[in-house]
Simulated scan of single mutants.
Amino acid sequence: MELKDLKSLIKLVTDTDITEFNMESAVGKIHIKRGPDKEIVYASAPVAAAPAAAPPAPAQTVVAQPPSAAAAEVNSKYEAIPSPIVGTFYRKPSPEADVFCKIGDVVEAGQVLCLVEAMKMFNEIEVEFKCKIVEIVKDDAAPVEYGETLFLVERL
């Protein structure tokens, strides 16, 4: 399996609610396991018959790095608004429209802050309380994980 195929498979698994995936074929074995702490991907290919003088090829292992801990280090003065789902973060309802909110905006409870697209479904992320937007952590069209901080806000 080529690296681009492996990356496509990892993206497919992370874009869904699947927590564990196994695949075995003549080409090799793949085991992907996800959890709230980190994602680990193991891939191995069969070892081809090598000349007697050459050592056998080691199994290939790909380990995905866990999400950055920088987003978790939030100033206690501000509250984090996390992503409720895995998907793609959008600040605007369409490419030509204005953003839902900017840094410094005061937003009311129930107001839409952004969209998170998952499997071609656009989910509106609403704020649950009146607050002021202090920081927008994610860039437009960036991938987000479940629980990853999208906004830092100051409750009003």
Rank of each mutant, 00 (worst) to 15 (best):
P66A: 02
V134N: 04
A49T: 13
V99F: 10
A48N: 12
A118Y: 02
G87Q: 06
P66S: 08
F151W: 02
A49W: 09
S68V: 07
I103V: 15
E96L: 12
Q60K: 11
P51S: 11
E126M: 05
P66E: 09
E126S: 09
D98H: 09
K77N: 14
A142F: 10
K102Y: 05
V63S: 11
V86I: 09
A69K: 12
Y146L: 13
I136L: 09
S76A: 15
P143S: 13
F151Q: 00
V107N: 04
V144F: 08
V137E: 00
L113I: 05
V99N: 12
E96W: 08
F89T: 02
A71T: 15
I81S: 03
G87I: 06
E79N: 14
Q111V: 02
E124C: 03
F129E: 15
I125P: 02
C131L: 02
V63Q: 10
V116K: 00
S83L: 01
E117P: 03
K77Q: 14
P56C: 03
C131Y: 02
D105L: 08
F100H: 04
F100Q: 04
Q60F: 13
T149A: 14
G147I: 09
P143V: 11
C114A: 12
N75V: 03
L152P: 08
R91G: 07
K130V: 10
F122G: 08
Y90M: 00
A50P: 07
A109Y: 00
A118N: 06
F100V: 02
